[in-house]
Design a protein around this nucleic acid. Sequence first.
RNA 1: GCGUCGGUGGCGGAGUGGUCAAUCGCACGACACUGUAAAUGUCGCGCCUACGGGCUACGUUGGUUCGAAUCCAACCCGGCGCA
Length: 419
Amino acid sequence: MSAISFTIEKRAPRSGARAGILTTPHGVIKTPAFVPVGTKADVKGIFPEQLVSIGAEVVLANTYHLYLQPGEKIVQDAGGLGKFMNWSGPTMTDSGGFQVFSLGAAFGKGISKFKDFVSPESDEGLTKSKHGLAVFDEDLATSHGKLAIIDDEGVSFTSHINGSLHRFTPERSVEIQHALGADMFFAFDECTSPTEPYEYQREAMERTHRWAERSLKAHRQNSSAQKKQALFGIVQGGRFEDLRKESACEIASLGFDGIGIGGSFSKEDMRGALRAAVGELPEELPRHFLGIGEPGDILEGIANGMDLFDCVAATRIGRHGSIYTRQGIVHLKNEKYRNDFSPLSECMGFVNLSSDEGFTKPFTLAYVSHLIRSGEMLGPIICSIHNIGFILQLVAGARQAILDGKFDEYRADFVREYY
RNA sequence: GCGUCGGUGGCGGAGUGGUCAAUCGCACGACACUGUAAAUGUCGCGCCUACGGGCUACGUUGGUUCGAAUCCAACCCGGCGCA
């Protein structure tokens, strides 16, 4: 018995795209859906009411961050993630598996989730340890510029906040996520660096599979949590299609409530890895494309049958002064926007961002550019809301297009103008 | 007027005989950002360039020296103190 239910309303004729309804204990999510990221129990710079007003239906927080600060007990005592952050709709939490990557192999290397990975440096093999470093060697890790090292049992890491030592296992991640109490949560996985070779990708994938089983077992041992929370397993396998297929089969066979597709790709590898995985997934489970993405990548995901997406880019680039528009990303700090008095909303093709909760009138590019340049906090806030709104609208439009049987045209039209 | 300290790139401010077109910060210009170590980071920022380098620059003028932003002299300008 799952805490959620998922029904598919309509499938697109010439692609894998599908529109569905995902019902959770805290409400309904119309899929495909974009899930704004609220890592530390807030979508940076945006009030819950504003999220609602621009169409958000669900938010995603992070286990690693909330465990470190303020601690899962506080969130639990507050009544769970949603109550803690004043969000009454559906919630999700990520497992902390991504931090294994971002604080581990990627730490200090300028590698992000989605870069062109030019020259994979030979890596002293810390994260490749086959012998299981049960005890975290801080000096060793630090000397390699990492805050996290992996063994078969779990991951030891130092807090990026104060350097204190911690350890996650699949069981611990589930326990923390039970305390956080989101409607949907993810199994603890190992998100590998795309620079890792095949052998290591296989090793990590198999470890992720073992962790998936342990996560599921831990979840099933808590029947009250099981009634309220759904657990998603995560497909890994790097850029290798055979691994992706194998991983998808394995994860799909275990009995999760939903499936996440994880990983870190180079731009060219995403589609192949995605297709290989999706082809092996059962139709009836909701599929979440972890960490994706940019407009084009989201549409690619939808076309390949993905239902849920989350991404920090909208708020991050917004905070950094860039906005999505129908014609592509605009860097508001650029000189040419200093005296561009065209309205923000019209520029991005929004029909309506004006509501009692949202903006009352469109701001001009010149104004927001000024706010960004002068360091006023309203600038990043406006851009973040704008960008989340843009993505939500893009996905809502895609959903409607699927229902209307016009997804291919919708996607083609968008891509033509945007890229 | 006397004394004293000081005048460096858009600004602030290092440097105090060669390795200085000149550290650094700001401003400015551009780029990056995909399960958030991120309201962050990277690059550029005298002029020209066939990218090897060339040219003009550290208040002004002159001098010392193989060589000066750096030493000397005069002058101009500013702060402070005394008249």
